[in-house]
Write a protein that binds this DNA or RNA. Structure first.
Lengths: 200, 200
DNA sequence: TGTACATCAGTGAACGCGCGTTCACTGATGTAC
DNA sequence: TGTACATCAGTGAACGCGCGTTCACTGATGTAC
């Protein structure tokens, strides 16, 4: 019986691995194009499989997208949680900067987050999970404010700070007529500026 | 000759009026759906005309969208300029609140602005015009900061403040599980909070 | 005033394409007896 | 060990639909002589 279990476990692992391959291919595409410009055929091509196979792993296009987002979200939350555990003195400035850097370096996450914030017509369970993820993200900001000595209206600070950084990214990310390097600098500059405002 | 000119002027006015009708129909749709969900057939139906007629007034779908955005942008800029002219004591709090209120009451503008910031593959001349509009909008914020007594790094303040308010809208506009009224309140609350941070 | 012609708003139907999704099938591997 | 059957990854082609755009046409109005 043990042997049998192991074999079926292996099977499931293989299946999961293939699923991840598809998700990875999708995310690679999201980092260079906006989500609505990524099609099933593109993902299949990138993953080196037939489009039809995708439907053996995902109900539909939406399910794939939502899952890709949740997977990526896990990464930034892990980074946050590690930052908070490792050092006691996590400042708003530091957490703000790592968040923005993460957004700049992971365009796929940025694309997905804004997509879900703006266009999203998600199923109820996905909305639930999306909220849960956002709350965990905000909890990271909470900790930063607390260890910066801000004890009043912490949640309000987190909401405002998180939203502001999102805004900086959205507003200046593709500022036309400027080089990528200039844009990075400007965004980081604004991030530091806002962080200081929030430290008061 | 005068008569002739007047007649052809009338013709042009009529033509312009029809053009505006189409733009208005489009904007009405933008206020209830995201831009990518608005099609030529929808706009034609709303305007009470045939889809083909739209192409007698606009090169293509993109041109229509860009023009609609510019038209709407003119409105908010006018509001700003009037605010600044009328009162000498325009505070960041006031200008921030009117901007956010405008975004909340004019979903079409919000939809278009974020669309152009995120997805946009505009033609060069459109980009130019988009930038020009954004700069005028930022100039409104500049004035507010100046009359609030902030004289250093005014442009930086405007950029950061403008971006932050955009971020608040994008992040909390469709916060699921909350009523529209609660969302409005929360957004205005965050706006005031951020305004105060910026006044220091 | 009447006639031939030009112009242009306006239209319904069709074109062409891309895309999400499904179909019908193959082939490999595992299972039961 | 061999045979019949089940399971499932994987596929290329097709389906169906929606959408931006164009076509070929009508009808009204203006213009030239």
């Amino acid at each position: 019986v043990t042997e049998k279990l192991t074999l079926s476990d292996l099977k499931r692992q293989e299946r999961d691995a293939r699923r991840q391959l598809i998700l990875d291919a999708a995310m690679e595409l999201f980092s260079s194009r906006s989500i609505s410009n990524v099609g099933i055929r593109d993902i299949a091509k990138k993953a080196g499989i037939s489009p039809a196979l995708i439907y053996r792993h995902f109900e539909d296009r939406d399910e794939l997208f939502v899952e890709a987002f949740f997977k990526k979200n896990e990464e930034i939350i892990t980074i946050f949680e590690r930052m908070i555990e490792e050092k006691e003195d996590v400042t708003t400035e530091k957490i703000g900067e790592s968040f923005v850097r993460f957004l700049m370096d992971n365009d796929d996450f940025f694309q997905m987050m804004t997509h879900f914030m703006l266009d999203s017509v998600m199923r109820d369970d996905a909305i639930e999970q999306f909220n849960h993820n956002m709350r965990r993200l905000l909890a990271g900001f909470d900790s930063a404010f607390e260890s910066s000595g801000i004890s009043e209206e912490v949640r309000l600070h987190s909401h405002a700070f998180f939203a502001s950084l999102n805004g900086v990214m959205i507003t200046f990310r593709s500022y036309p007529g400027r080089s990528e390097e200039e844009i990075r600098k400007h965004i980081l500059h604004l991030t530091r500026f806002i962080s200081l405002k929030f430290m008061k």
